[in-house]
Deep mutational scan, measured.
Amino acid sequence: NITNLCPFDEVFNATRFASVYAWNRKRISNCVADYSVLYNLAPFFTFKCYGVSPTKLNDLCFTNVYADSFVIRGDEVRQIAPGQTGNIADYNYKLPDDFTGCVIAWNSNKLDSKVSGNYNYLYRLFRKSNLKPFERDISTEIYQAGNKPCNGVAGFNCYFPLRSYSFRPTYGVGHQPYRVVVLSFELLHAPATVCGPKKST
């Protein structure tokens, strides 16, 4: 009989979030998941669920729940959905087409922007091929755009693959930082360890 609440607040209220290319994953298990708490945590810009209804979450049980978190800019949030393409979905964080879970995003301009520009958040701009779903690539190998090998040196047709967002508070919403948490629900042929409040007794 599990009584402890799932530590969603640790994920959502973390002081620092990860850069999207090096997104963070927390496995959540053996706890009571009260998803209604999430609705009250922040004024969400996005709370979209796929393959599951957000209002039914509190009635369900899962084997595992994974919470992935990272920062992107406002106009990239739409890429965090099944079947999307674009720089983020292709080279940084890719959801599977049959994704079961929820994408939660909110504006973090007050936390993640600086007047002089916050350069701490990076994204991958160049990659030889698209990522597979939930693949994480943290390599910093020089990207070869031409025929000549780069031998690890940046220059003509040889690019450092990561680029930094420079978040400034005066930017338009599309270029402001957004914190994203992706909850993916895993149903294996194994005992369910993460249940809503109704199912945990």
Rank of each mutant, 00 (worst) to 15 (best):
T63V: 10
F8A: 05
F44A: 15
N87M: 15
F8C: 04
K110F: 07
R78C: 07
C158I: 01
P149Y: 08
E76A: 04
E10K: 11
A154L: 08
V180H: 03
D59V: 07
S129R: 13
C195R: 08
L41M: 14
R27I: 14
S184N: 13
G51I: 04
N109M: 05
F17H: 03
N157H: 01
S184K: 10
N40H: 13
P82I: 04
L125G: 13
T140Y: 10
S139C: 06
G117P: 03
I80D: 00
V65L: 14
Y165Q: 00
N92L: 01
G86E: 01
L5Q: 12
G152K: 10
F126Q: 03
G172K: 00
L122N: 12
K148E: 14
V71Y: 01
P197A: 15
Q84R: 11
L188Y: 12
Y39M: 14
Y171S: 01
L111S: 08
S116L: 09
N130D: 10
N151W: 10
G174Q: 06
G74R: 04
D9Q: 12
F70V: 00
S184Y: 10
V182W: 01
A42H: 14
L183F: 09
A105Q: 05
G86N: 03
R136M: 07
F17L: 06
D9N: 13
G196C: 09
K199A: 15
F45Q: 15
I72Y: 01
H189C: 08
S19P: 07
L183H: 02
I80K: 01
F45Y: 15
V173C: 08
V173N: 10
G117I: 03
N40L: 08
G172P: 00
K48H: 09
S113F: 01
T193F: 11
T55M: 14
A42F: 13
F17K: 03
F167K: 00
D75K: 07
C158H: 01
E135C: 05
N147V: 07
V77P: 01
V153G: 11
C49W: 09
P7A: 12
P133N: 05
W23E: 00
E76Q: 10
Y123E: 04
P169K: 05
S200I: 15
N64L: 11
S116A: 13
A33V: 14
K56R: 14
K26W: 07
D98C: 07
K48F: 05
V103R: 03
V65K: 05
V103Q: 01
R179P: 00
N58G: 12
F156C: 04
K56D: 12
R16H: 15
S116R: 12
K94Q: 05
T140G: 09
N109R: 06
F12H: 04
